[in-house]
Write a protein that binds this DNA or RNA. Structure first.
Length: 212
DNA sequence: ATCCCGAGGG
DNA sequence: CCCTCTGGAT
């Protein structure tokens, strides 16, 4: 008998666009920067800023030598730009000094870097290195997990722990983007389109919508 | 006013 | 656990 998590995955897969992230990137370093920039922002906003940004700062070496104030200019249109600019430059310096300009590929090394928490590390490992060790829990995954009763965890970490139990491992690599896509298109934070929802019968908050 | 593919600090 | 950082979209 398929688990609830598996049912949800199977129902949503037909709506999946085949990608693992909506962010545009051409290598692991760009992916890393793009994911950092995407915090509390939309992928559309990030994709709009990254072309000019990566032209000016193509790699870790360029960013390690960059002036933080100049970096800010390129990401001003994205939220939280002060912290992000500082973190990106600090992170790039560490990559150059400690990793030869490359992005490390373990959870421990990644989360030790400035600006990279577990969510960002999960994406980098899974999408950038094909080393899926968890499921990235962002605002969409968090919200949908609660609404569907997959988890009642109060923190992203607690929710991830539940998801790893509820969702079979073969879906892990796709899980984040499948849920994000559903969260953006149907199960939105405000006024979710429940009548168009392919998993409405599996949802615990059928119809009525409060906070989550 | 509220939310967006969060992280870090208190 | 809570708060703050932030512009842009809705």
């Amino acid at each position: 008998m398929p688990s609830r998590g598996e049912l949800i995955m199977e129902r949503l897969i037909p709506y999946h666009d085949g990608k693992f992230v909506g962010l545009n990137y051409e290598n692991v370093f760009h992916l890393t920067i793009a994911v950092i920039l995407s915090a509390q922002s939309t992928d559309v906003a990030v994709n709009k800023a990254t072309p000019a940004f990566f032209e000016r700062f193509p790699d870790a070496k360029a960013l390690a030598e960059a002036d933080v104030e100049e970096v800010k200019e390129y990401i001003k249109s994205i939220g939280l730009y002060n912290t992000k600019a500082r973190n990106i430059v600090a992170l790039s310096r560490i990559l150059v000094e400690k990793y030869g300009g490359m992005v490390p590929n373990t959870m421990e090394e990644l989360t030790a870097l400035p600006g990279i928490g577990r969510k960002t590390a999960n994406i980098i490992l899974s999408v950038g290195f094909d080393r899926t060790v968890g499921i990235a829990v962002d605002t969409h995954v968090f919200r949908i997990s609660h609404r569907t009763g997959l988890s009642q965890g109060k923190t992203p970490n607690a929710v991830e722990k539940d998801l790893l139990r509820e969702i079979p491992r073969k879906y892990w690599k796709y899980a984040n983007h499948i849920l994000v896509t559903h969260g953006r298109n149907i199960c939105t934070a405000r006024k979710p389109l429940c009548t168009q929802c392919p998993i409405e019968d599996l949802c615990e908050k059928n119809g009525v919508r409060g906070k989550d």
